[in-house]
């Protein structure tokens, strides 16, 4: 141990940390994942900026009020909020070392995510069917890119979660799978936060401007 000169209290408390933080390397990966989220915050900020600047440039296409259906958006929001709750419970179960419970709540999260993506795809298909594609106007380009960027993130999350379910079955709750679950939960909650902003800025905002 080369660290004997250090804060003894901090040292002792490491024994009480959850396993994914007790391990130095896994805890570093969690810090790294937070920084990935930081970059993603700015990715979405840039998309929001594009949307905010282009929202009025509808060219010959539809206006925001014509495109958005608040009902669908509300259902999507509720699904995502619920999935944020379920993954939260999964992490709680993980801290209680209840592996079966973790798997079930994670599976439920995946199902909710799939429902969200399906509804979004149906919504997109409906818009495209009436000729409101992303080539119609700058407004629609920015709208589709913003919402599709979020949808792609959710899709990636679903793939990730399914792979996680496999790893959980094979390896159980190890330090590594715990860290992977933990970072997945961070990702998923983050997507929920971004959706809250999309719901507010795009869908509610569309009613207000």
């Amino acid at each position: 141990m080369s660290s004997h000169a250090l804060d003894g209290k901090a040292k002792a408390s490491h024994q009480e940390l959850p396993p994914e933080f007790q391990d130095q390397e896994e805890s570093i990966k969690i810090t790294g994942f937070w920084l990935f989220i930081v970059t993603d915050v700015l990715i979405f900020a840039s998309l929001f900026a594009t949307y905010a600047v282009l929202v009025n440039r509808v060219a010959a296409g539809p206006t925001p009020a014509q495109v958005f259906q608040l009902n669908t958006a509300l259902i999507e929001t509720l699904i995502l909020l619920t999935s944020s709750f379920t993954i939260g419970i999964a992490i709680w179960a993980m801290r209680q070392n209840r592996q079966r419970m973790v798997s079930w709540w994670l599976a439920l999260t995946v199902l909710l995510g799939m429902a969200f993506v399906s509804i979004e795809l149906v919504e997109f298909a409906g818009d495209v069917a009436v000729g409101w594609g992303w080539h119609t106007s700058a407004f629609l380009s920015s709208f589709f890119l913003l919402v599709a960027a979020h949808g792609t993130h959710v899709t990636m999350g679903i793939i990730w979660a399914v792979a996680l379910l496999f790893q959980l079955r094979r390896r159980g709750l190890t330090t590594v799978t715990r860290r992977k679950l933990y970072t997945f939960s961070l990702y998923w909650h983050f997507l929920d936060i971004m959706w809250v902003f999309i719901f507010t800025v795009v869908y509610l905002g569309g009613r207000l401007i």
Binding site: L42, I43, S137, L145
Partner: peptide
């Protein structure tokens, strides 16, 4: 990140027919 988005949107304008920065479609 803003750079990534600027590049992506320009690229989409060229290969996917969007109109973020085009002369037409606002």
């Amino acid at each position: 990140p803003p750079f990534t988005i600027a590049l992506l949107e320009s690229l989409l304008d060229r290969v996917a027919g969007t109109s973020f920065f085009t002369l037409s479609h606002g």
